[in-house]
């Protein structure tokens, strides 16, 4: 089982992730060029970059400043979510073994804390969906499913790292859930990891280049 999930299954998952995202981005680009010409006639790199960078900085936009707690939570969630798997020691050791390349790695105690941050923030985000009326009204089971898909690799990874009861089960579950997340990205809302830059570039140009208005 371990051989399968780290071998063919990993190739399939990464293949679907990269290929799926490439197909998605390119097809959306061409579809936009065919149907939404309005996107391109005021496109501006300057406004696009401004709009993207402003929204990548914590408290860079007015809406972020209006909801400071949520902004802190969502930024720590996203930052830890990205950093932990990429700079995790064990992931990089496997990378080194397979391809002979390895990135700078985090100390294990730090990755442990980052993982806990991800899990705690996911719990917070789920509670927020229940607690706040304006979030609850737009929430459906799908939102919880996506939260679960995102949180699962971290929960199982945490349990596996601490060798909680059945280690082999948790590790294989961890690898599988990570692969499920990778496969899910091109087909679900998680694709915002790439589409964020496209839609932000559009609104930045739309509001900025066309009207001289800031979108933050």
């Amino acid at each position: 089982m371990y051989q399968f999930v780290t071998g063919p299954m990993a190739w399939i998952a990464f293949g679907i992730f990269f290929l799926g995202m490439a197909v998605k981005v390119v097809s959306l680009f061409y579809l936009t060029r065919e149907k939404d010409k309005v996107v391109f006639n005021h496109f501006s790199w300057q406004w696009s970059l401004k709009s993207i960078i402003r929204w990548l900085i914590p408290f860079g936009s007015r809406s972020m400043r209006e909801k400071p707690l949520f902004t802190i939570i969502t930024f720590s969630f996203h930052i830890c979510l990205l950093i932990t798997p990429i700079f995790l020691l064990s992931h990089n050791i496997i990378l080194e073994e397979r391809w002979g390349i390895s990135l700078w790695t985090l100390p294990e105690s730090v990755s442990d804390i980052l993982t806990i941050v991800v899990i705690v923030t996911v719990v917070f985000l789920a509670l927020r969906r229940i607690a706040l009326a304006d979030v609850r009204i737009v929430t459906s089971a799908y939102d919880y499913l996506l939260l679960a898909i995102t949180a699962m690799p971290f929960i199982t990874g945490f349990l596996a790292y601490h060798q909680f009861s059945n280690y082999k089960f948790w590790l294989i579950f961890h690898i599988l859930s990570g692969e499920i997340m990778l496969i899910a990205i091109p087909f679900t809302r998680l694709s915002h990891i790439f589409l964020f830059f496209m839609t932000r570039a559009h609104i930045g140009s739309e509001m900025g280049q066309r009207r001289g208005a800031a979108t933050w």
Binding site: K67, D134, V138, M198, H202
Partner: peptide, 21 residues
């Protein structure tokens, strides 16, 4: 159904940043 609507309808995270606007 152009690129914009497709992307927008898919990626709305239902985060409710918009409500206060």
């Amino acid at each position: 159904k152009g690129g914009r609507f497709k992307a927008w309808l898919e990626i709305c995270a239902h985060c409710a940043y918009c409500s206060d606007s």
